[in-house]
Amino acid sequence: MQTFDLATRGLRELNQTLHALRGTTNETAWEIVNAKGSHAIAVGVDAPLDITVRGSTGYYCAGMNKQATIRIDGNAGPGVAENMMSGRVIIEGDASQYAGATGRGGLLVIKGNASSRCGISMKGIDIVVHGSIGHMSAFMAQSGNMVVLGDAGDALGDSLYEARLFVRGSVKSLGADCIEKEMRPAHLAMLAELLERGEAGHKAKPEEFRRYGSARKLYTFNVDNAAAY
C-alpha cells in the first residue's frame, strides 16, 4: 500500500503519478489521505489500481476512470465518476449532484444517498444507490442500469432512452416518457447480480424492486406529443 498525502504533495503530482501507471497491469494499492474536499482527485486513471480516498472529495472525483477501483471513504462532491469508462467507484457516504453523469461503463456504488440528476445522460454505466436519489435522476439516460434501494425524487427518467431503472421505494413522479415496465425473470437475475456487485446483496431482494424505462414515445418528434416537451 502506497500512501499519498494530498495536503503536502498536491493534486498535480497525484494525478501525474497515477497517470504514469497507465499501461501497467500491477494491481497496486494506493491510499490518498487529506482529501479535504479537493476537486478532480484521481481523474483520468487508466490502470487496474486499487485506490482509497480518505475523507470527502470535491467535484469530479474519479472522473473518466478506466479500470481502477476507487473507494471514497467519505462523501463525494458533484459529478463523481463522471463519464466513467470501466472499473468501479464506491462511495461509503453520500454523493452530490450528477453522480455518474454520462458514464459509459463500469460500476458506481453509492452507499448513502445521491442528490439530484444522478445518472444524468448515462451511457452504459451501472449505478447502485443504497439510499435514495434526488430529482431529475437518469434524465436523458441512454443505456446502462440504475438500481435504487431507497426512493426516487421528482421526474425520474425524464426523456430517457434505453437505460433500465430499478427502484425499491417510492417514486415521487416519473418524468416525460418514463413508465413502469414489467419485471421479467431476466431482469430479476440481472438485478440480483447488480445488487451483489453493488455490495447490497444482503440489503435487498430483486423481487422488492419495480422497473422503469422508456415508453419510446418521444423517440421521433410527433406534434401530438409536443405538450410532453
Binding site: L11, A40, V43, G58, Y60, G79
Partner: peptide, 9 residues
C-alpha cells in the same frame, strides 16, 4: 472546476 478536471486528465 470542470476545466481543472480536463486539464488534470
Amino acid at each position: 472546476i470542470k476545466i481543472l478536471e480536463l486539464r488534470e486528465i
